[in-house]
């Protein structure tokens, strides 16, 4: 009896020894990936589902992992993508408001910097403040500041054109700064 390649890949996925390896991977990444999803979709059940389905699809696509990035960052990208595509389906995807663009922001005085510590910020407080911002601002700030993606990646993953998207990101940062200052004052 000869195994076909299809059977072999099922074997990979379902074979008992492999299951242990899969659960090991799961335990290692579940917590972090759950939070990545949770910050985007903001619902615990949904975040768990997205995290778990992303894990499974990562197991199945293991061969597509190009090894240029770490397994963790590859997986994280899958989680972010799945979370965003959920928002897209639910019609909650960050978009660019017309007024924002027509406002025509040139390079704004971006770097007036805020001393986060002096402002008495903690992770929890920042999340709280961010949730008071406009939804699309909260989204891009999450991707940019918390997930550490650069602007280009964010624009690409959101499917937005570069110029507008950059403007949105810097406005989002500006409004976060304003909020923090308010909080401080």
């Amino acid at each position: 009896m000869t195994l076909t390649e299809t059977e072999i890949s099922i074997y990979d996925l379902c074979e008992q020894g492999d299951r242990r390896a899969q659960m090991k991977l799961y335990d290692q990444y579940a917590y972090g990936m759950y939070h990545v999803a949770l910050r985007i979709v903001q619902q615990t059940d949904l975040a768990q589902d997205i995290m778990q389905e992303s894990m499974i699809s990562a197991f199945r696509k293991m061969n597509q992992w190009n090894r240029e990035s770490t397994y963790g960052s590859w997986l994280k990208r899958i989680v972010i993508n799945n979370s965003l595509s959920h928002l897209r389906k639910a019609g909650k995807m960050p978009t660019i408001d017309y007024e924002e663009v027509s406002y025509e922001m040139e390079q704004q005085p971006d770097d007036t910097g805020i001393d986060m510590e002096q402002a008495g910020m903690t992770a929890r407080k920042v999340l709280e403040i961010m949730s008071e911002l406009k939804e699309n601002y909260r989204q891009v700030l999450t991707l940019s500041l918390i997930e550490g993606m650069d602007n280009e990646e964010i624009c690409e993953i959101l499917g937005l054109s570069n110029g507008q998207c950059r403007t949105m990101i810097s406005r989002a940062k500006q409004s976060l700064r304003n909020k923090i200052e308010e909080y401080e004052g």
Binding site: G32, Y34, Q48, T122, A123, R124, L127
Partner: peptide, 9 residues
Amino acid sequence: QDFDTTPLP
């Protein structure tokens, strides 16, 4: 910062 603060369900 550590933003991963909620336990898994």
